[in-house]
């Protein structure tokens, strides 16, 4: 064997053609789909769990009154529609907050983090690819839970204007919660265990953002804390659109949109800064791939 030839071949500088971003992202989606498909029983359980959750709140709604819901300005559908919207749109909260750090934790856990980072794939594209599949799954579960709810008698205003407004509010919901997800990923990359940011955020927003009850039922101090959370404005806006037929032209919805934009404007630079700090620090001490 001519060793010189081998050395020449290895030394050859053949620049890798850059794959277009969409192809990389699609590869990630296909990879995650394949992994997901191997857990068919879990897939059935995810769907069954979601249906059971919606049906539980349907049965719970049978012992509730609609008075507080109507007083809060949500005119049709009563408690069940109110709770259904809370349950369904929480899918996106979970997706936005958890998807990035869960993906990174999985790669660390399976010992594949360093392998991925040593490929030509850019870290930002890697993160984008990792969250895309979670987004598709969350959207499917959201639509399914809304469908089950509608089958059980939930009532919503479905006009083009109200649906368009819901889409805008949903985008803002995802963007605002993505900031929390990015921030907590930065923390996780450094401390490696637990997830204090996500944890505190999840239970506090469940308690004070009006997922299962109108904010007016809370004592003033909790209601005040609730106004810090983006979920409060997103859910209020979405409910006003779907339960009262309002749209982006109404002042209440605009107020919610402005509050969400303010949150995003403040939280985005902070979360990117924390993420960068955590990422750089983990790279510096060589612990990015460690669990």
């Amino acid at each position: 064997m001519d060793i010189k030839k081998i050395v020449d071949i290895i030394s050859e500088d053949v620049p890798r053609r850059k794959s277009p971003i969409h192809r990389i992202v699609i590869s990630f989606i296909i990879r995650d789909l394949k992994v997901w498909w191997t857990y068919k029983f879990w897939l059935i359980l995810d769907i069954a769990g979601m249906i059971l959750f919606v049906v539980t709140y349907y049965l719970f709604s049978l012992i509730t009154t609609s008075q507080q819901i109507q007083e809060a300005g949500y005119m049709v559908g009563g408690y069940f529609t109110f709770a259904l919207i809370g349950i369904a749109f929480q899918q996106y909260v979970h997706f936005a907050v958890q998807s990035i750090n869960e993906s990174i934790r999985d790669e660390q856990w399976n010992g594949t983090m360093e392998t991925i980072l040593s490929t030509a794939t850019d870290f930002k594209i890697f993160l984008l690819g990792e969250v895309c599949f979670s987004f598709i799954v969350s959207s499917a579960l959201l639509l399914m839970s809304l469908f089950v709810g509608l089958m059980l008698g939930a009532k919503v205003y479905a006009t083009p204007a109200s649906i368009l407004s819901v889409i805008v509010l949903t985008i803002l919901l995802i963007a605002s919660h993505m900031d929390i997800g990015i921030l907590s990923t930065g923390v996780i990359m450094k401390i490696k265990q637990g997830n204090p940011v996500t944890w505190a955020f999840s239970w506090l927003s469940q308690l004070v953002s009006g997922v299962f009850y109108p904010l007016k039922l809370l004592p003033w101090y909790l209601e005040w804390i609730g106004r810090i959370f983006p979920l409060t404005y997103s859910l209020d806006g979405i409910r006003l659109c779907l339960q009262s037929g309002k749209d982006l032209t109404s002042p209440e919805i605009l107020n919610n949109v402005i509050n969400l934009l303010i949150f995003i404007a403040i939280a985005t630079p902070i979360s990117i800064y924390v993420f960068k700090k955590g990422y750089d620090s983990a790279r510096r001490d060589g612990s990015l791939g460690q669990y």
Binding site: T64, T65, G194, W199, L204, L218
Partner: peptide, 26 residues
């Protein structure tokens, strides 16, 4: 320890949540 503390706080939060839900029950 952190897990115990966080789970304890989550438990308290969930009870608070149920108490607010109860305000809507007939």
């Amino acid at each position: 320890k952190t897990w115990v503390i966080t789970e304890t706080i989550s438990t308290v939060a969930s009870i608070a949540m149920y108490s607010f839900m109860g305000l809507q029950v007939d």
